[in-house]
């Protein structure tokens, strides 16, 4: 019982601690990175249950802001190999369980 209680506590702790956006890999310039990151966070929070909608929103907003042909992948588990334009890649984790990959390739 104690174990499970502890486990729950740990989980809660984990969720609380791991809610921040963690940039895993990016080559964007500072300004763009911040904007893209904030956009990802907003989208993921808005569509917490629907990754597709979140991805769509991110993609559309990025297209609008930084020119077309952005691609977004959101999921809890996936592998990928992509070709992206230099300085246009953001690969980040969010909310402890989501991975978001945003890149541009036209």
């Amino acid at each position: 019982m104690a174990d499970t209680g502890e486990g729950k506590k740990e989980e809660a702790d984990y969720k609380r601690l791991h809610s921040f956006p963690l940039i895993r890999h990016t080559d964007m310039p500072e300004e763009m990175r911040v904007e893209a990151m904030e956009l990802c966070v907003t989208a993921c929070e808005k569509y917490a249950t629907n990754n597709e909608s979140a991805a769509k929103m991110i993609k559309e907003m990025m297209d609008k802001k930084f020119g077309s042909s952005w691609h977004v992948v959101i999921g809890e588990g996936f592998g990928f190999e992509i070709t992206h334009e230099v300085k246009n890649l953001l690969y980040m984790f969010f909310g402890g369980s989501l991975a978001v990959c945003v890149w541009k390739c036209s």
Partner: peptide
């Protein structure tokens, strides 16, 4: 042509967890 690069990674739950723990 705009310079392009390849990037590949795998995202799954344990990788994400490890990344967070490391960061913390």
């Amino acid at each position: 042509p705009t310079p392009c690069k390849n990037f590949s990674a795998t995202a799954n739950q344990w990788e994400i967890y490890d990344a967070y723990v490391e960061e913390l």
